[in-house]
Deep mutational scan, measured.
Amino acid sequence: SPEEIKAKALDLLNKKLHRANKFGQDQADIDSLQRQINRVEKFGVDLNSKLAEELGLV
């Protein structure tokens, strides 16, 4: 269901964000992850996106 997909995506992105902060990645990478999280919260996951591929939806 779209809600489950959204939850999985947010979980994955939050893990990536945590790792980025923990290991001191570029601020641009961290900002990009934050924008992705905001986009998923607002609009859900686009099944044509790279994120959908990472989640194994495509």
Rank of each mutant, 00 (worst) to 15 (best):
L55R: 00
E54G: 03
K15W: 03
N21D: 11
F23I: 14
L57I: 12
L12N: 05
D31P: 03
A28Q: 11
E4F: 11
K50L: 12
V45S: 01
K15M: 08
L10N: 01
S1I: 08
A28E: 10
I30S: 03
V45M: 04
L17H: 02
E4R: 08
S49A: 03
N21I: 15
D26M: 07
G44C: 02
K6F: 03
N38I: 13
F23V: 13
F23C: 13
V58E: 08
E41W: 02
E4A: 12
D31V: 08
L55I: 07
K6W: 05
K16M: 13
I5N: 08
K22P: 03
G56P: 02
G24K: 05
N14L: 14
A52N: 03
N38M: 06
L33Y: 03
N48E: 11
R39K: 13
D29G: 09
L57E: 03
E53Y: 13
L13T: 00
G56H: 06
N48H: 12
R19A: 15
L47C: 08
K22S: 11
H18W: 07
G56C: 06
I30Y: 04
L47Y: 08
N14Y: 15
K8E: 06
A28D: 11
K42Y: 06
Q25P: 07
S49L: 02
L51C: 04
N38R: 14
L51D: 03
L57W: 07
L57V: 07
A20E: 04
R35C: 13
K50H: 10
L13C: 01
A7L: 13
R39G: 09
S32W: 14
R19E: 15
S1Q: 09
Q25F: 14
D29Q: 14
F43K: 04
I30P: 01
N21Y: 10
Q34R: 13
Q27T: 09
K8D: 04
N48L: 08
S32P: 01
K15Y: 02
S32Y: 14
D26T: 11
E53V: 14
A28C: 11
E53I: 13
V58I: 12
K15C: 15
L10T: 02
D31H: 06
V45I: 10
S32Q: 12
L13G: 00
L55P: 00
A7K: 14
H18T: 12
V58Y: 06
G24F: 07
A20G: 03
N21T: 14
G24A: 09
K42G: 05
D26K: 09
K6C: 05
R39P: 01
N14M: 13
L55S: 01
D26V: 08
L47M: 13
S1R: 10
R19K: 13
E4T: 11
L33M: 03
D11H: 06
Q36G: 02
H18E: 15
N48I: 05
G56Q: 08
L33E: 00
L17N: 00
Q34A: 06
Q25I: 10
I37K: 04
F43P: 02
V45G: 02
G44M: 00
K15E: 13
K22C: 15
K6R: 12
A9Q: 02
K22A: 14
A7R: 13
P2S: 11
A7G: 07
L33W: 02
P2Y: 13
N38S: 14
L17V: 04
L57H: 04
L57S: 03
E41H: 08
R39S: 14
N38W: 05
Q27S: 09
Q27E: 08
D31W: 01
N14W: 13
L12R: 05
K15D: 10
R19N: 15
P2G: 10
K15N: 10
R19G: 06
I37V: 03
S1D: 12
L10E: 02
L47G: 05
A52I: 05
V40H: 01
L55C: 01
K50M: 11
K42H: 11
A20H: 04
V58Q: 11
R19L: 15
N48K: 10
D29Y: 15
A52R: 03
R39Y: 15
K6N: 06
L33P: 00
N48D: 10
A28M: 10
F43R: 04
S49P: 02
K16P: 00
S32I: 12
V58T: 13
I5G: 03
R19P: 03
L10G: 01
S49I: 02
S49W: 04
Q25V: 13
L12S: 05
K42S: 09
K6T: 07
Q34I: 15
F23Q: 12
D11I: 05
S49H: 03
E53C: 12
E53T: 09
K16Y: 05
Q34M: 14
D29H: 14
K16H: 05
E3Q: 10
E3W: 07
Q27M: 10
E41G: 05
L47I: 11
L13E: 00
E4K: 07
R19S: 13
Q36W: 06
K50C: 11
L47S: 06
I30G: 02
L12A: 07
D26E: 09
L17A: 02
E54N: 04
